[in-house]
């Protein structure tokens, strides 16, 4: 299985956050994050599972997302740098919870 043959990476409907996934759902009909995660956990009702599989059969981008996430879930834990959790906590504490789009991601 070679993910590199896919020219485009990741489903735009689920990516780029701020609830865009939910709003854009009708555009591409790609499953939202909850539904996608539910499918991965095998926790969806049969009708919902059918509709995800219907979509996966027709959408190579979501299929690639599915392969990739399943593979990364199957991988063992990685050792996390010790200081990371603390710096995440500090960052949250100094934040007031207001929206700061793209604050941390450097482009």
């Amino acid at each position: 299985m070679d993910g590199a043959k896919f020219n485009s990476i990741g489903c735009s409907d689920r990516i780029s956050g701020n609830g865009a996934a939910e709003k854009k759902k009708e555009a591409g009909n790609c499953p939202d994050t909850n539904t996608f995660a539910g499918y991965l956990d095998n926790k969806l009702a049969p009708t919902e599972r059918d509709s995800v599989e219907n979509h996966l059969a027709d959408c190579p981008v979501c299929r690639n997302d599915f392969y990739e996430i399943r593979m990364l879930m199957d991988q063992g834990a990685k050792e996390t740098p010790e200081a990371l959790a603390d710096s995440v906590k500090n960052n949250l504490q100094t934040h007031d919870g207001a929206p700061t789009p793209g604050r941390k991601i450097k482009i």
Binding site: G10, R14, I15, T33, A37, D65, E68, I69, L72, M73
Partner: peptide, 8 residues
């Protein structure tokens, strides 16, 4: 769920 979010 958080795996999907962080991968996104």
């Amino acid at each position: 769920w958080i795996t999907v979010v962080s991968r996104n």
